Simulated assay, not measured.
Amino acid sequence: MTGGPSRGARGGRAWREGHAAEWIAALWLMLKGYRILGFRLKSRAGEIDILARRGRVLAVVEVKRRKTMQAALAALTPHQTARLVAAAQQVVRGRKALQALEIRLDLVALAPGRFPRHRRGVGA
């Protein structure tokens, strides 16, 4: 035995920290004028952390929290990008009101002691 937290305890903490990071990201986006349309939207292609709208832009937002800002900004892989685009297309297909909007993939990066960073159009 290592004496550290069990795998289940670590997983629960990661889940809570992930949800907290999504709420921080949503608040940051709202301060920038975005309207939050949904959290953790599931589709066959994957899950969208945050769906937000500002004007004619429908932002599909991936939230990454890491120990450093640099690690958070680099955490979105090409595979995840493709999955998020496919998930966005499926969500939009099912919601007529969203079909005329421009879909954009954004990233909100978080790290302890740092302000969030919002990168627009990360998959373009």
Rank of each mutant, 00 (worst) to 15 (best):
G55A: 05
A45L: 09
R44E: 12
V60W: 04
Q80E: 08
R93T: 11
V85W: 05
A52K: 12
S43G: 13
A52C: 13
A75H: 06
I50D: 01
R56H: 08
A87K: 03
L58H: 08
Q80F: 05
T68V: 01
A72T: 07
A52D: 13
A72Y: 11
R83M: 10
A87P: 12
M69L: 15
R95P: 01
L84C: 06
A71K: 12
K64F: 14
L51R: 13
L84H: 03
V63L: 06
G55W: 10
R66N: 01
V92I: 09
P78V: 00
R44Q: 10
L76K: 12
K67P: 06
R95S: 12
Q89D: 05
L51W: 04
Q90H: 04
A75T: 11
R65V: 09
V91H: 06
R83L: 11
T77V: 12
A45K: 09
R44F: 04
I50Y: 06
L84A: 00
Q89H: 11
L58Y: 02
R93Q: 04
R66P: 00
A86Q: 10
V57C: 03
R54I: 15
K67Y: 06
Q70W: 09
S43E: 06
T77C: 07
A52H: 09
G94D: 05
E47W: 00
L84R: 04
T81V: 14
A45I: 14
I50K: 01
S43H: 07
M69H: 04
A88M: 04
K64M: 12
Q90F: 00
G55N: 08
R65K: 15
A87L: 03
V92H: 03
L84D: 03
R95H: 12
V85T: 06
G46M: 00
L58V: 10
A82C: 14
Q80R: 06
R56C: 12
K64T: 02
T68N: 01
Q70G: 14
A75E: 02
Q70I: 07
L73S: 04
L76T: 15
R83G: 08
A74H: 12
H79G: 11
M69S: 06
G46Y: 01
G55V: 11
E62S: 15
L84Y: 00
G94H: 01
A72R: 03
A52N: 15
G46D: 02
L84Q: 08
A52F: 13
V92K: 05
V63Y: 02
R95D: 10
K67S: 14
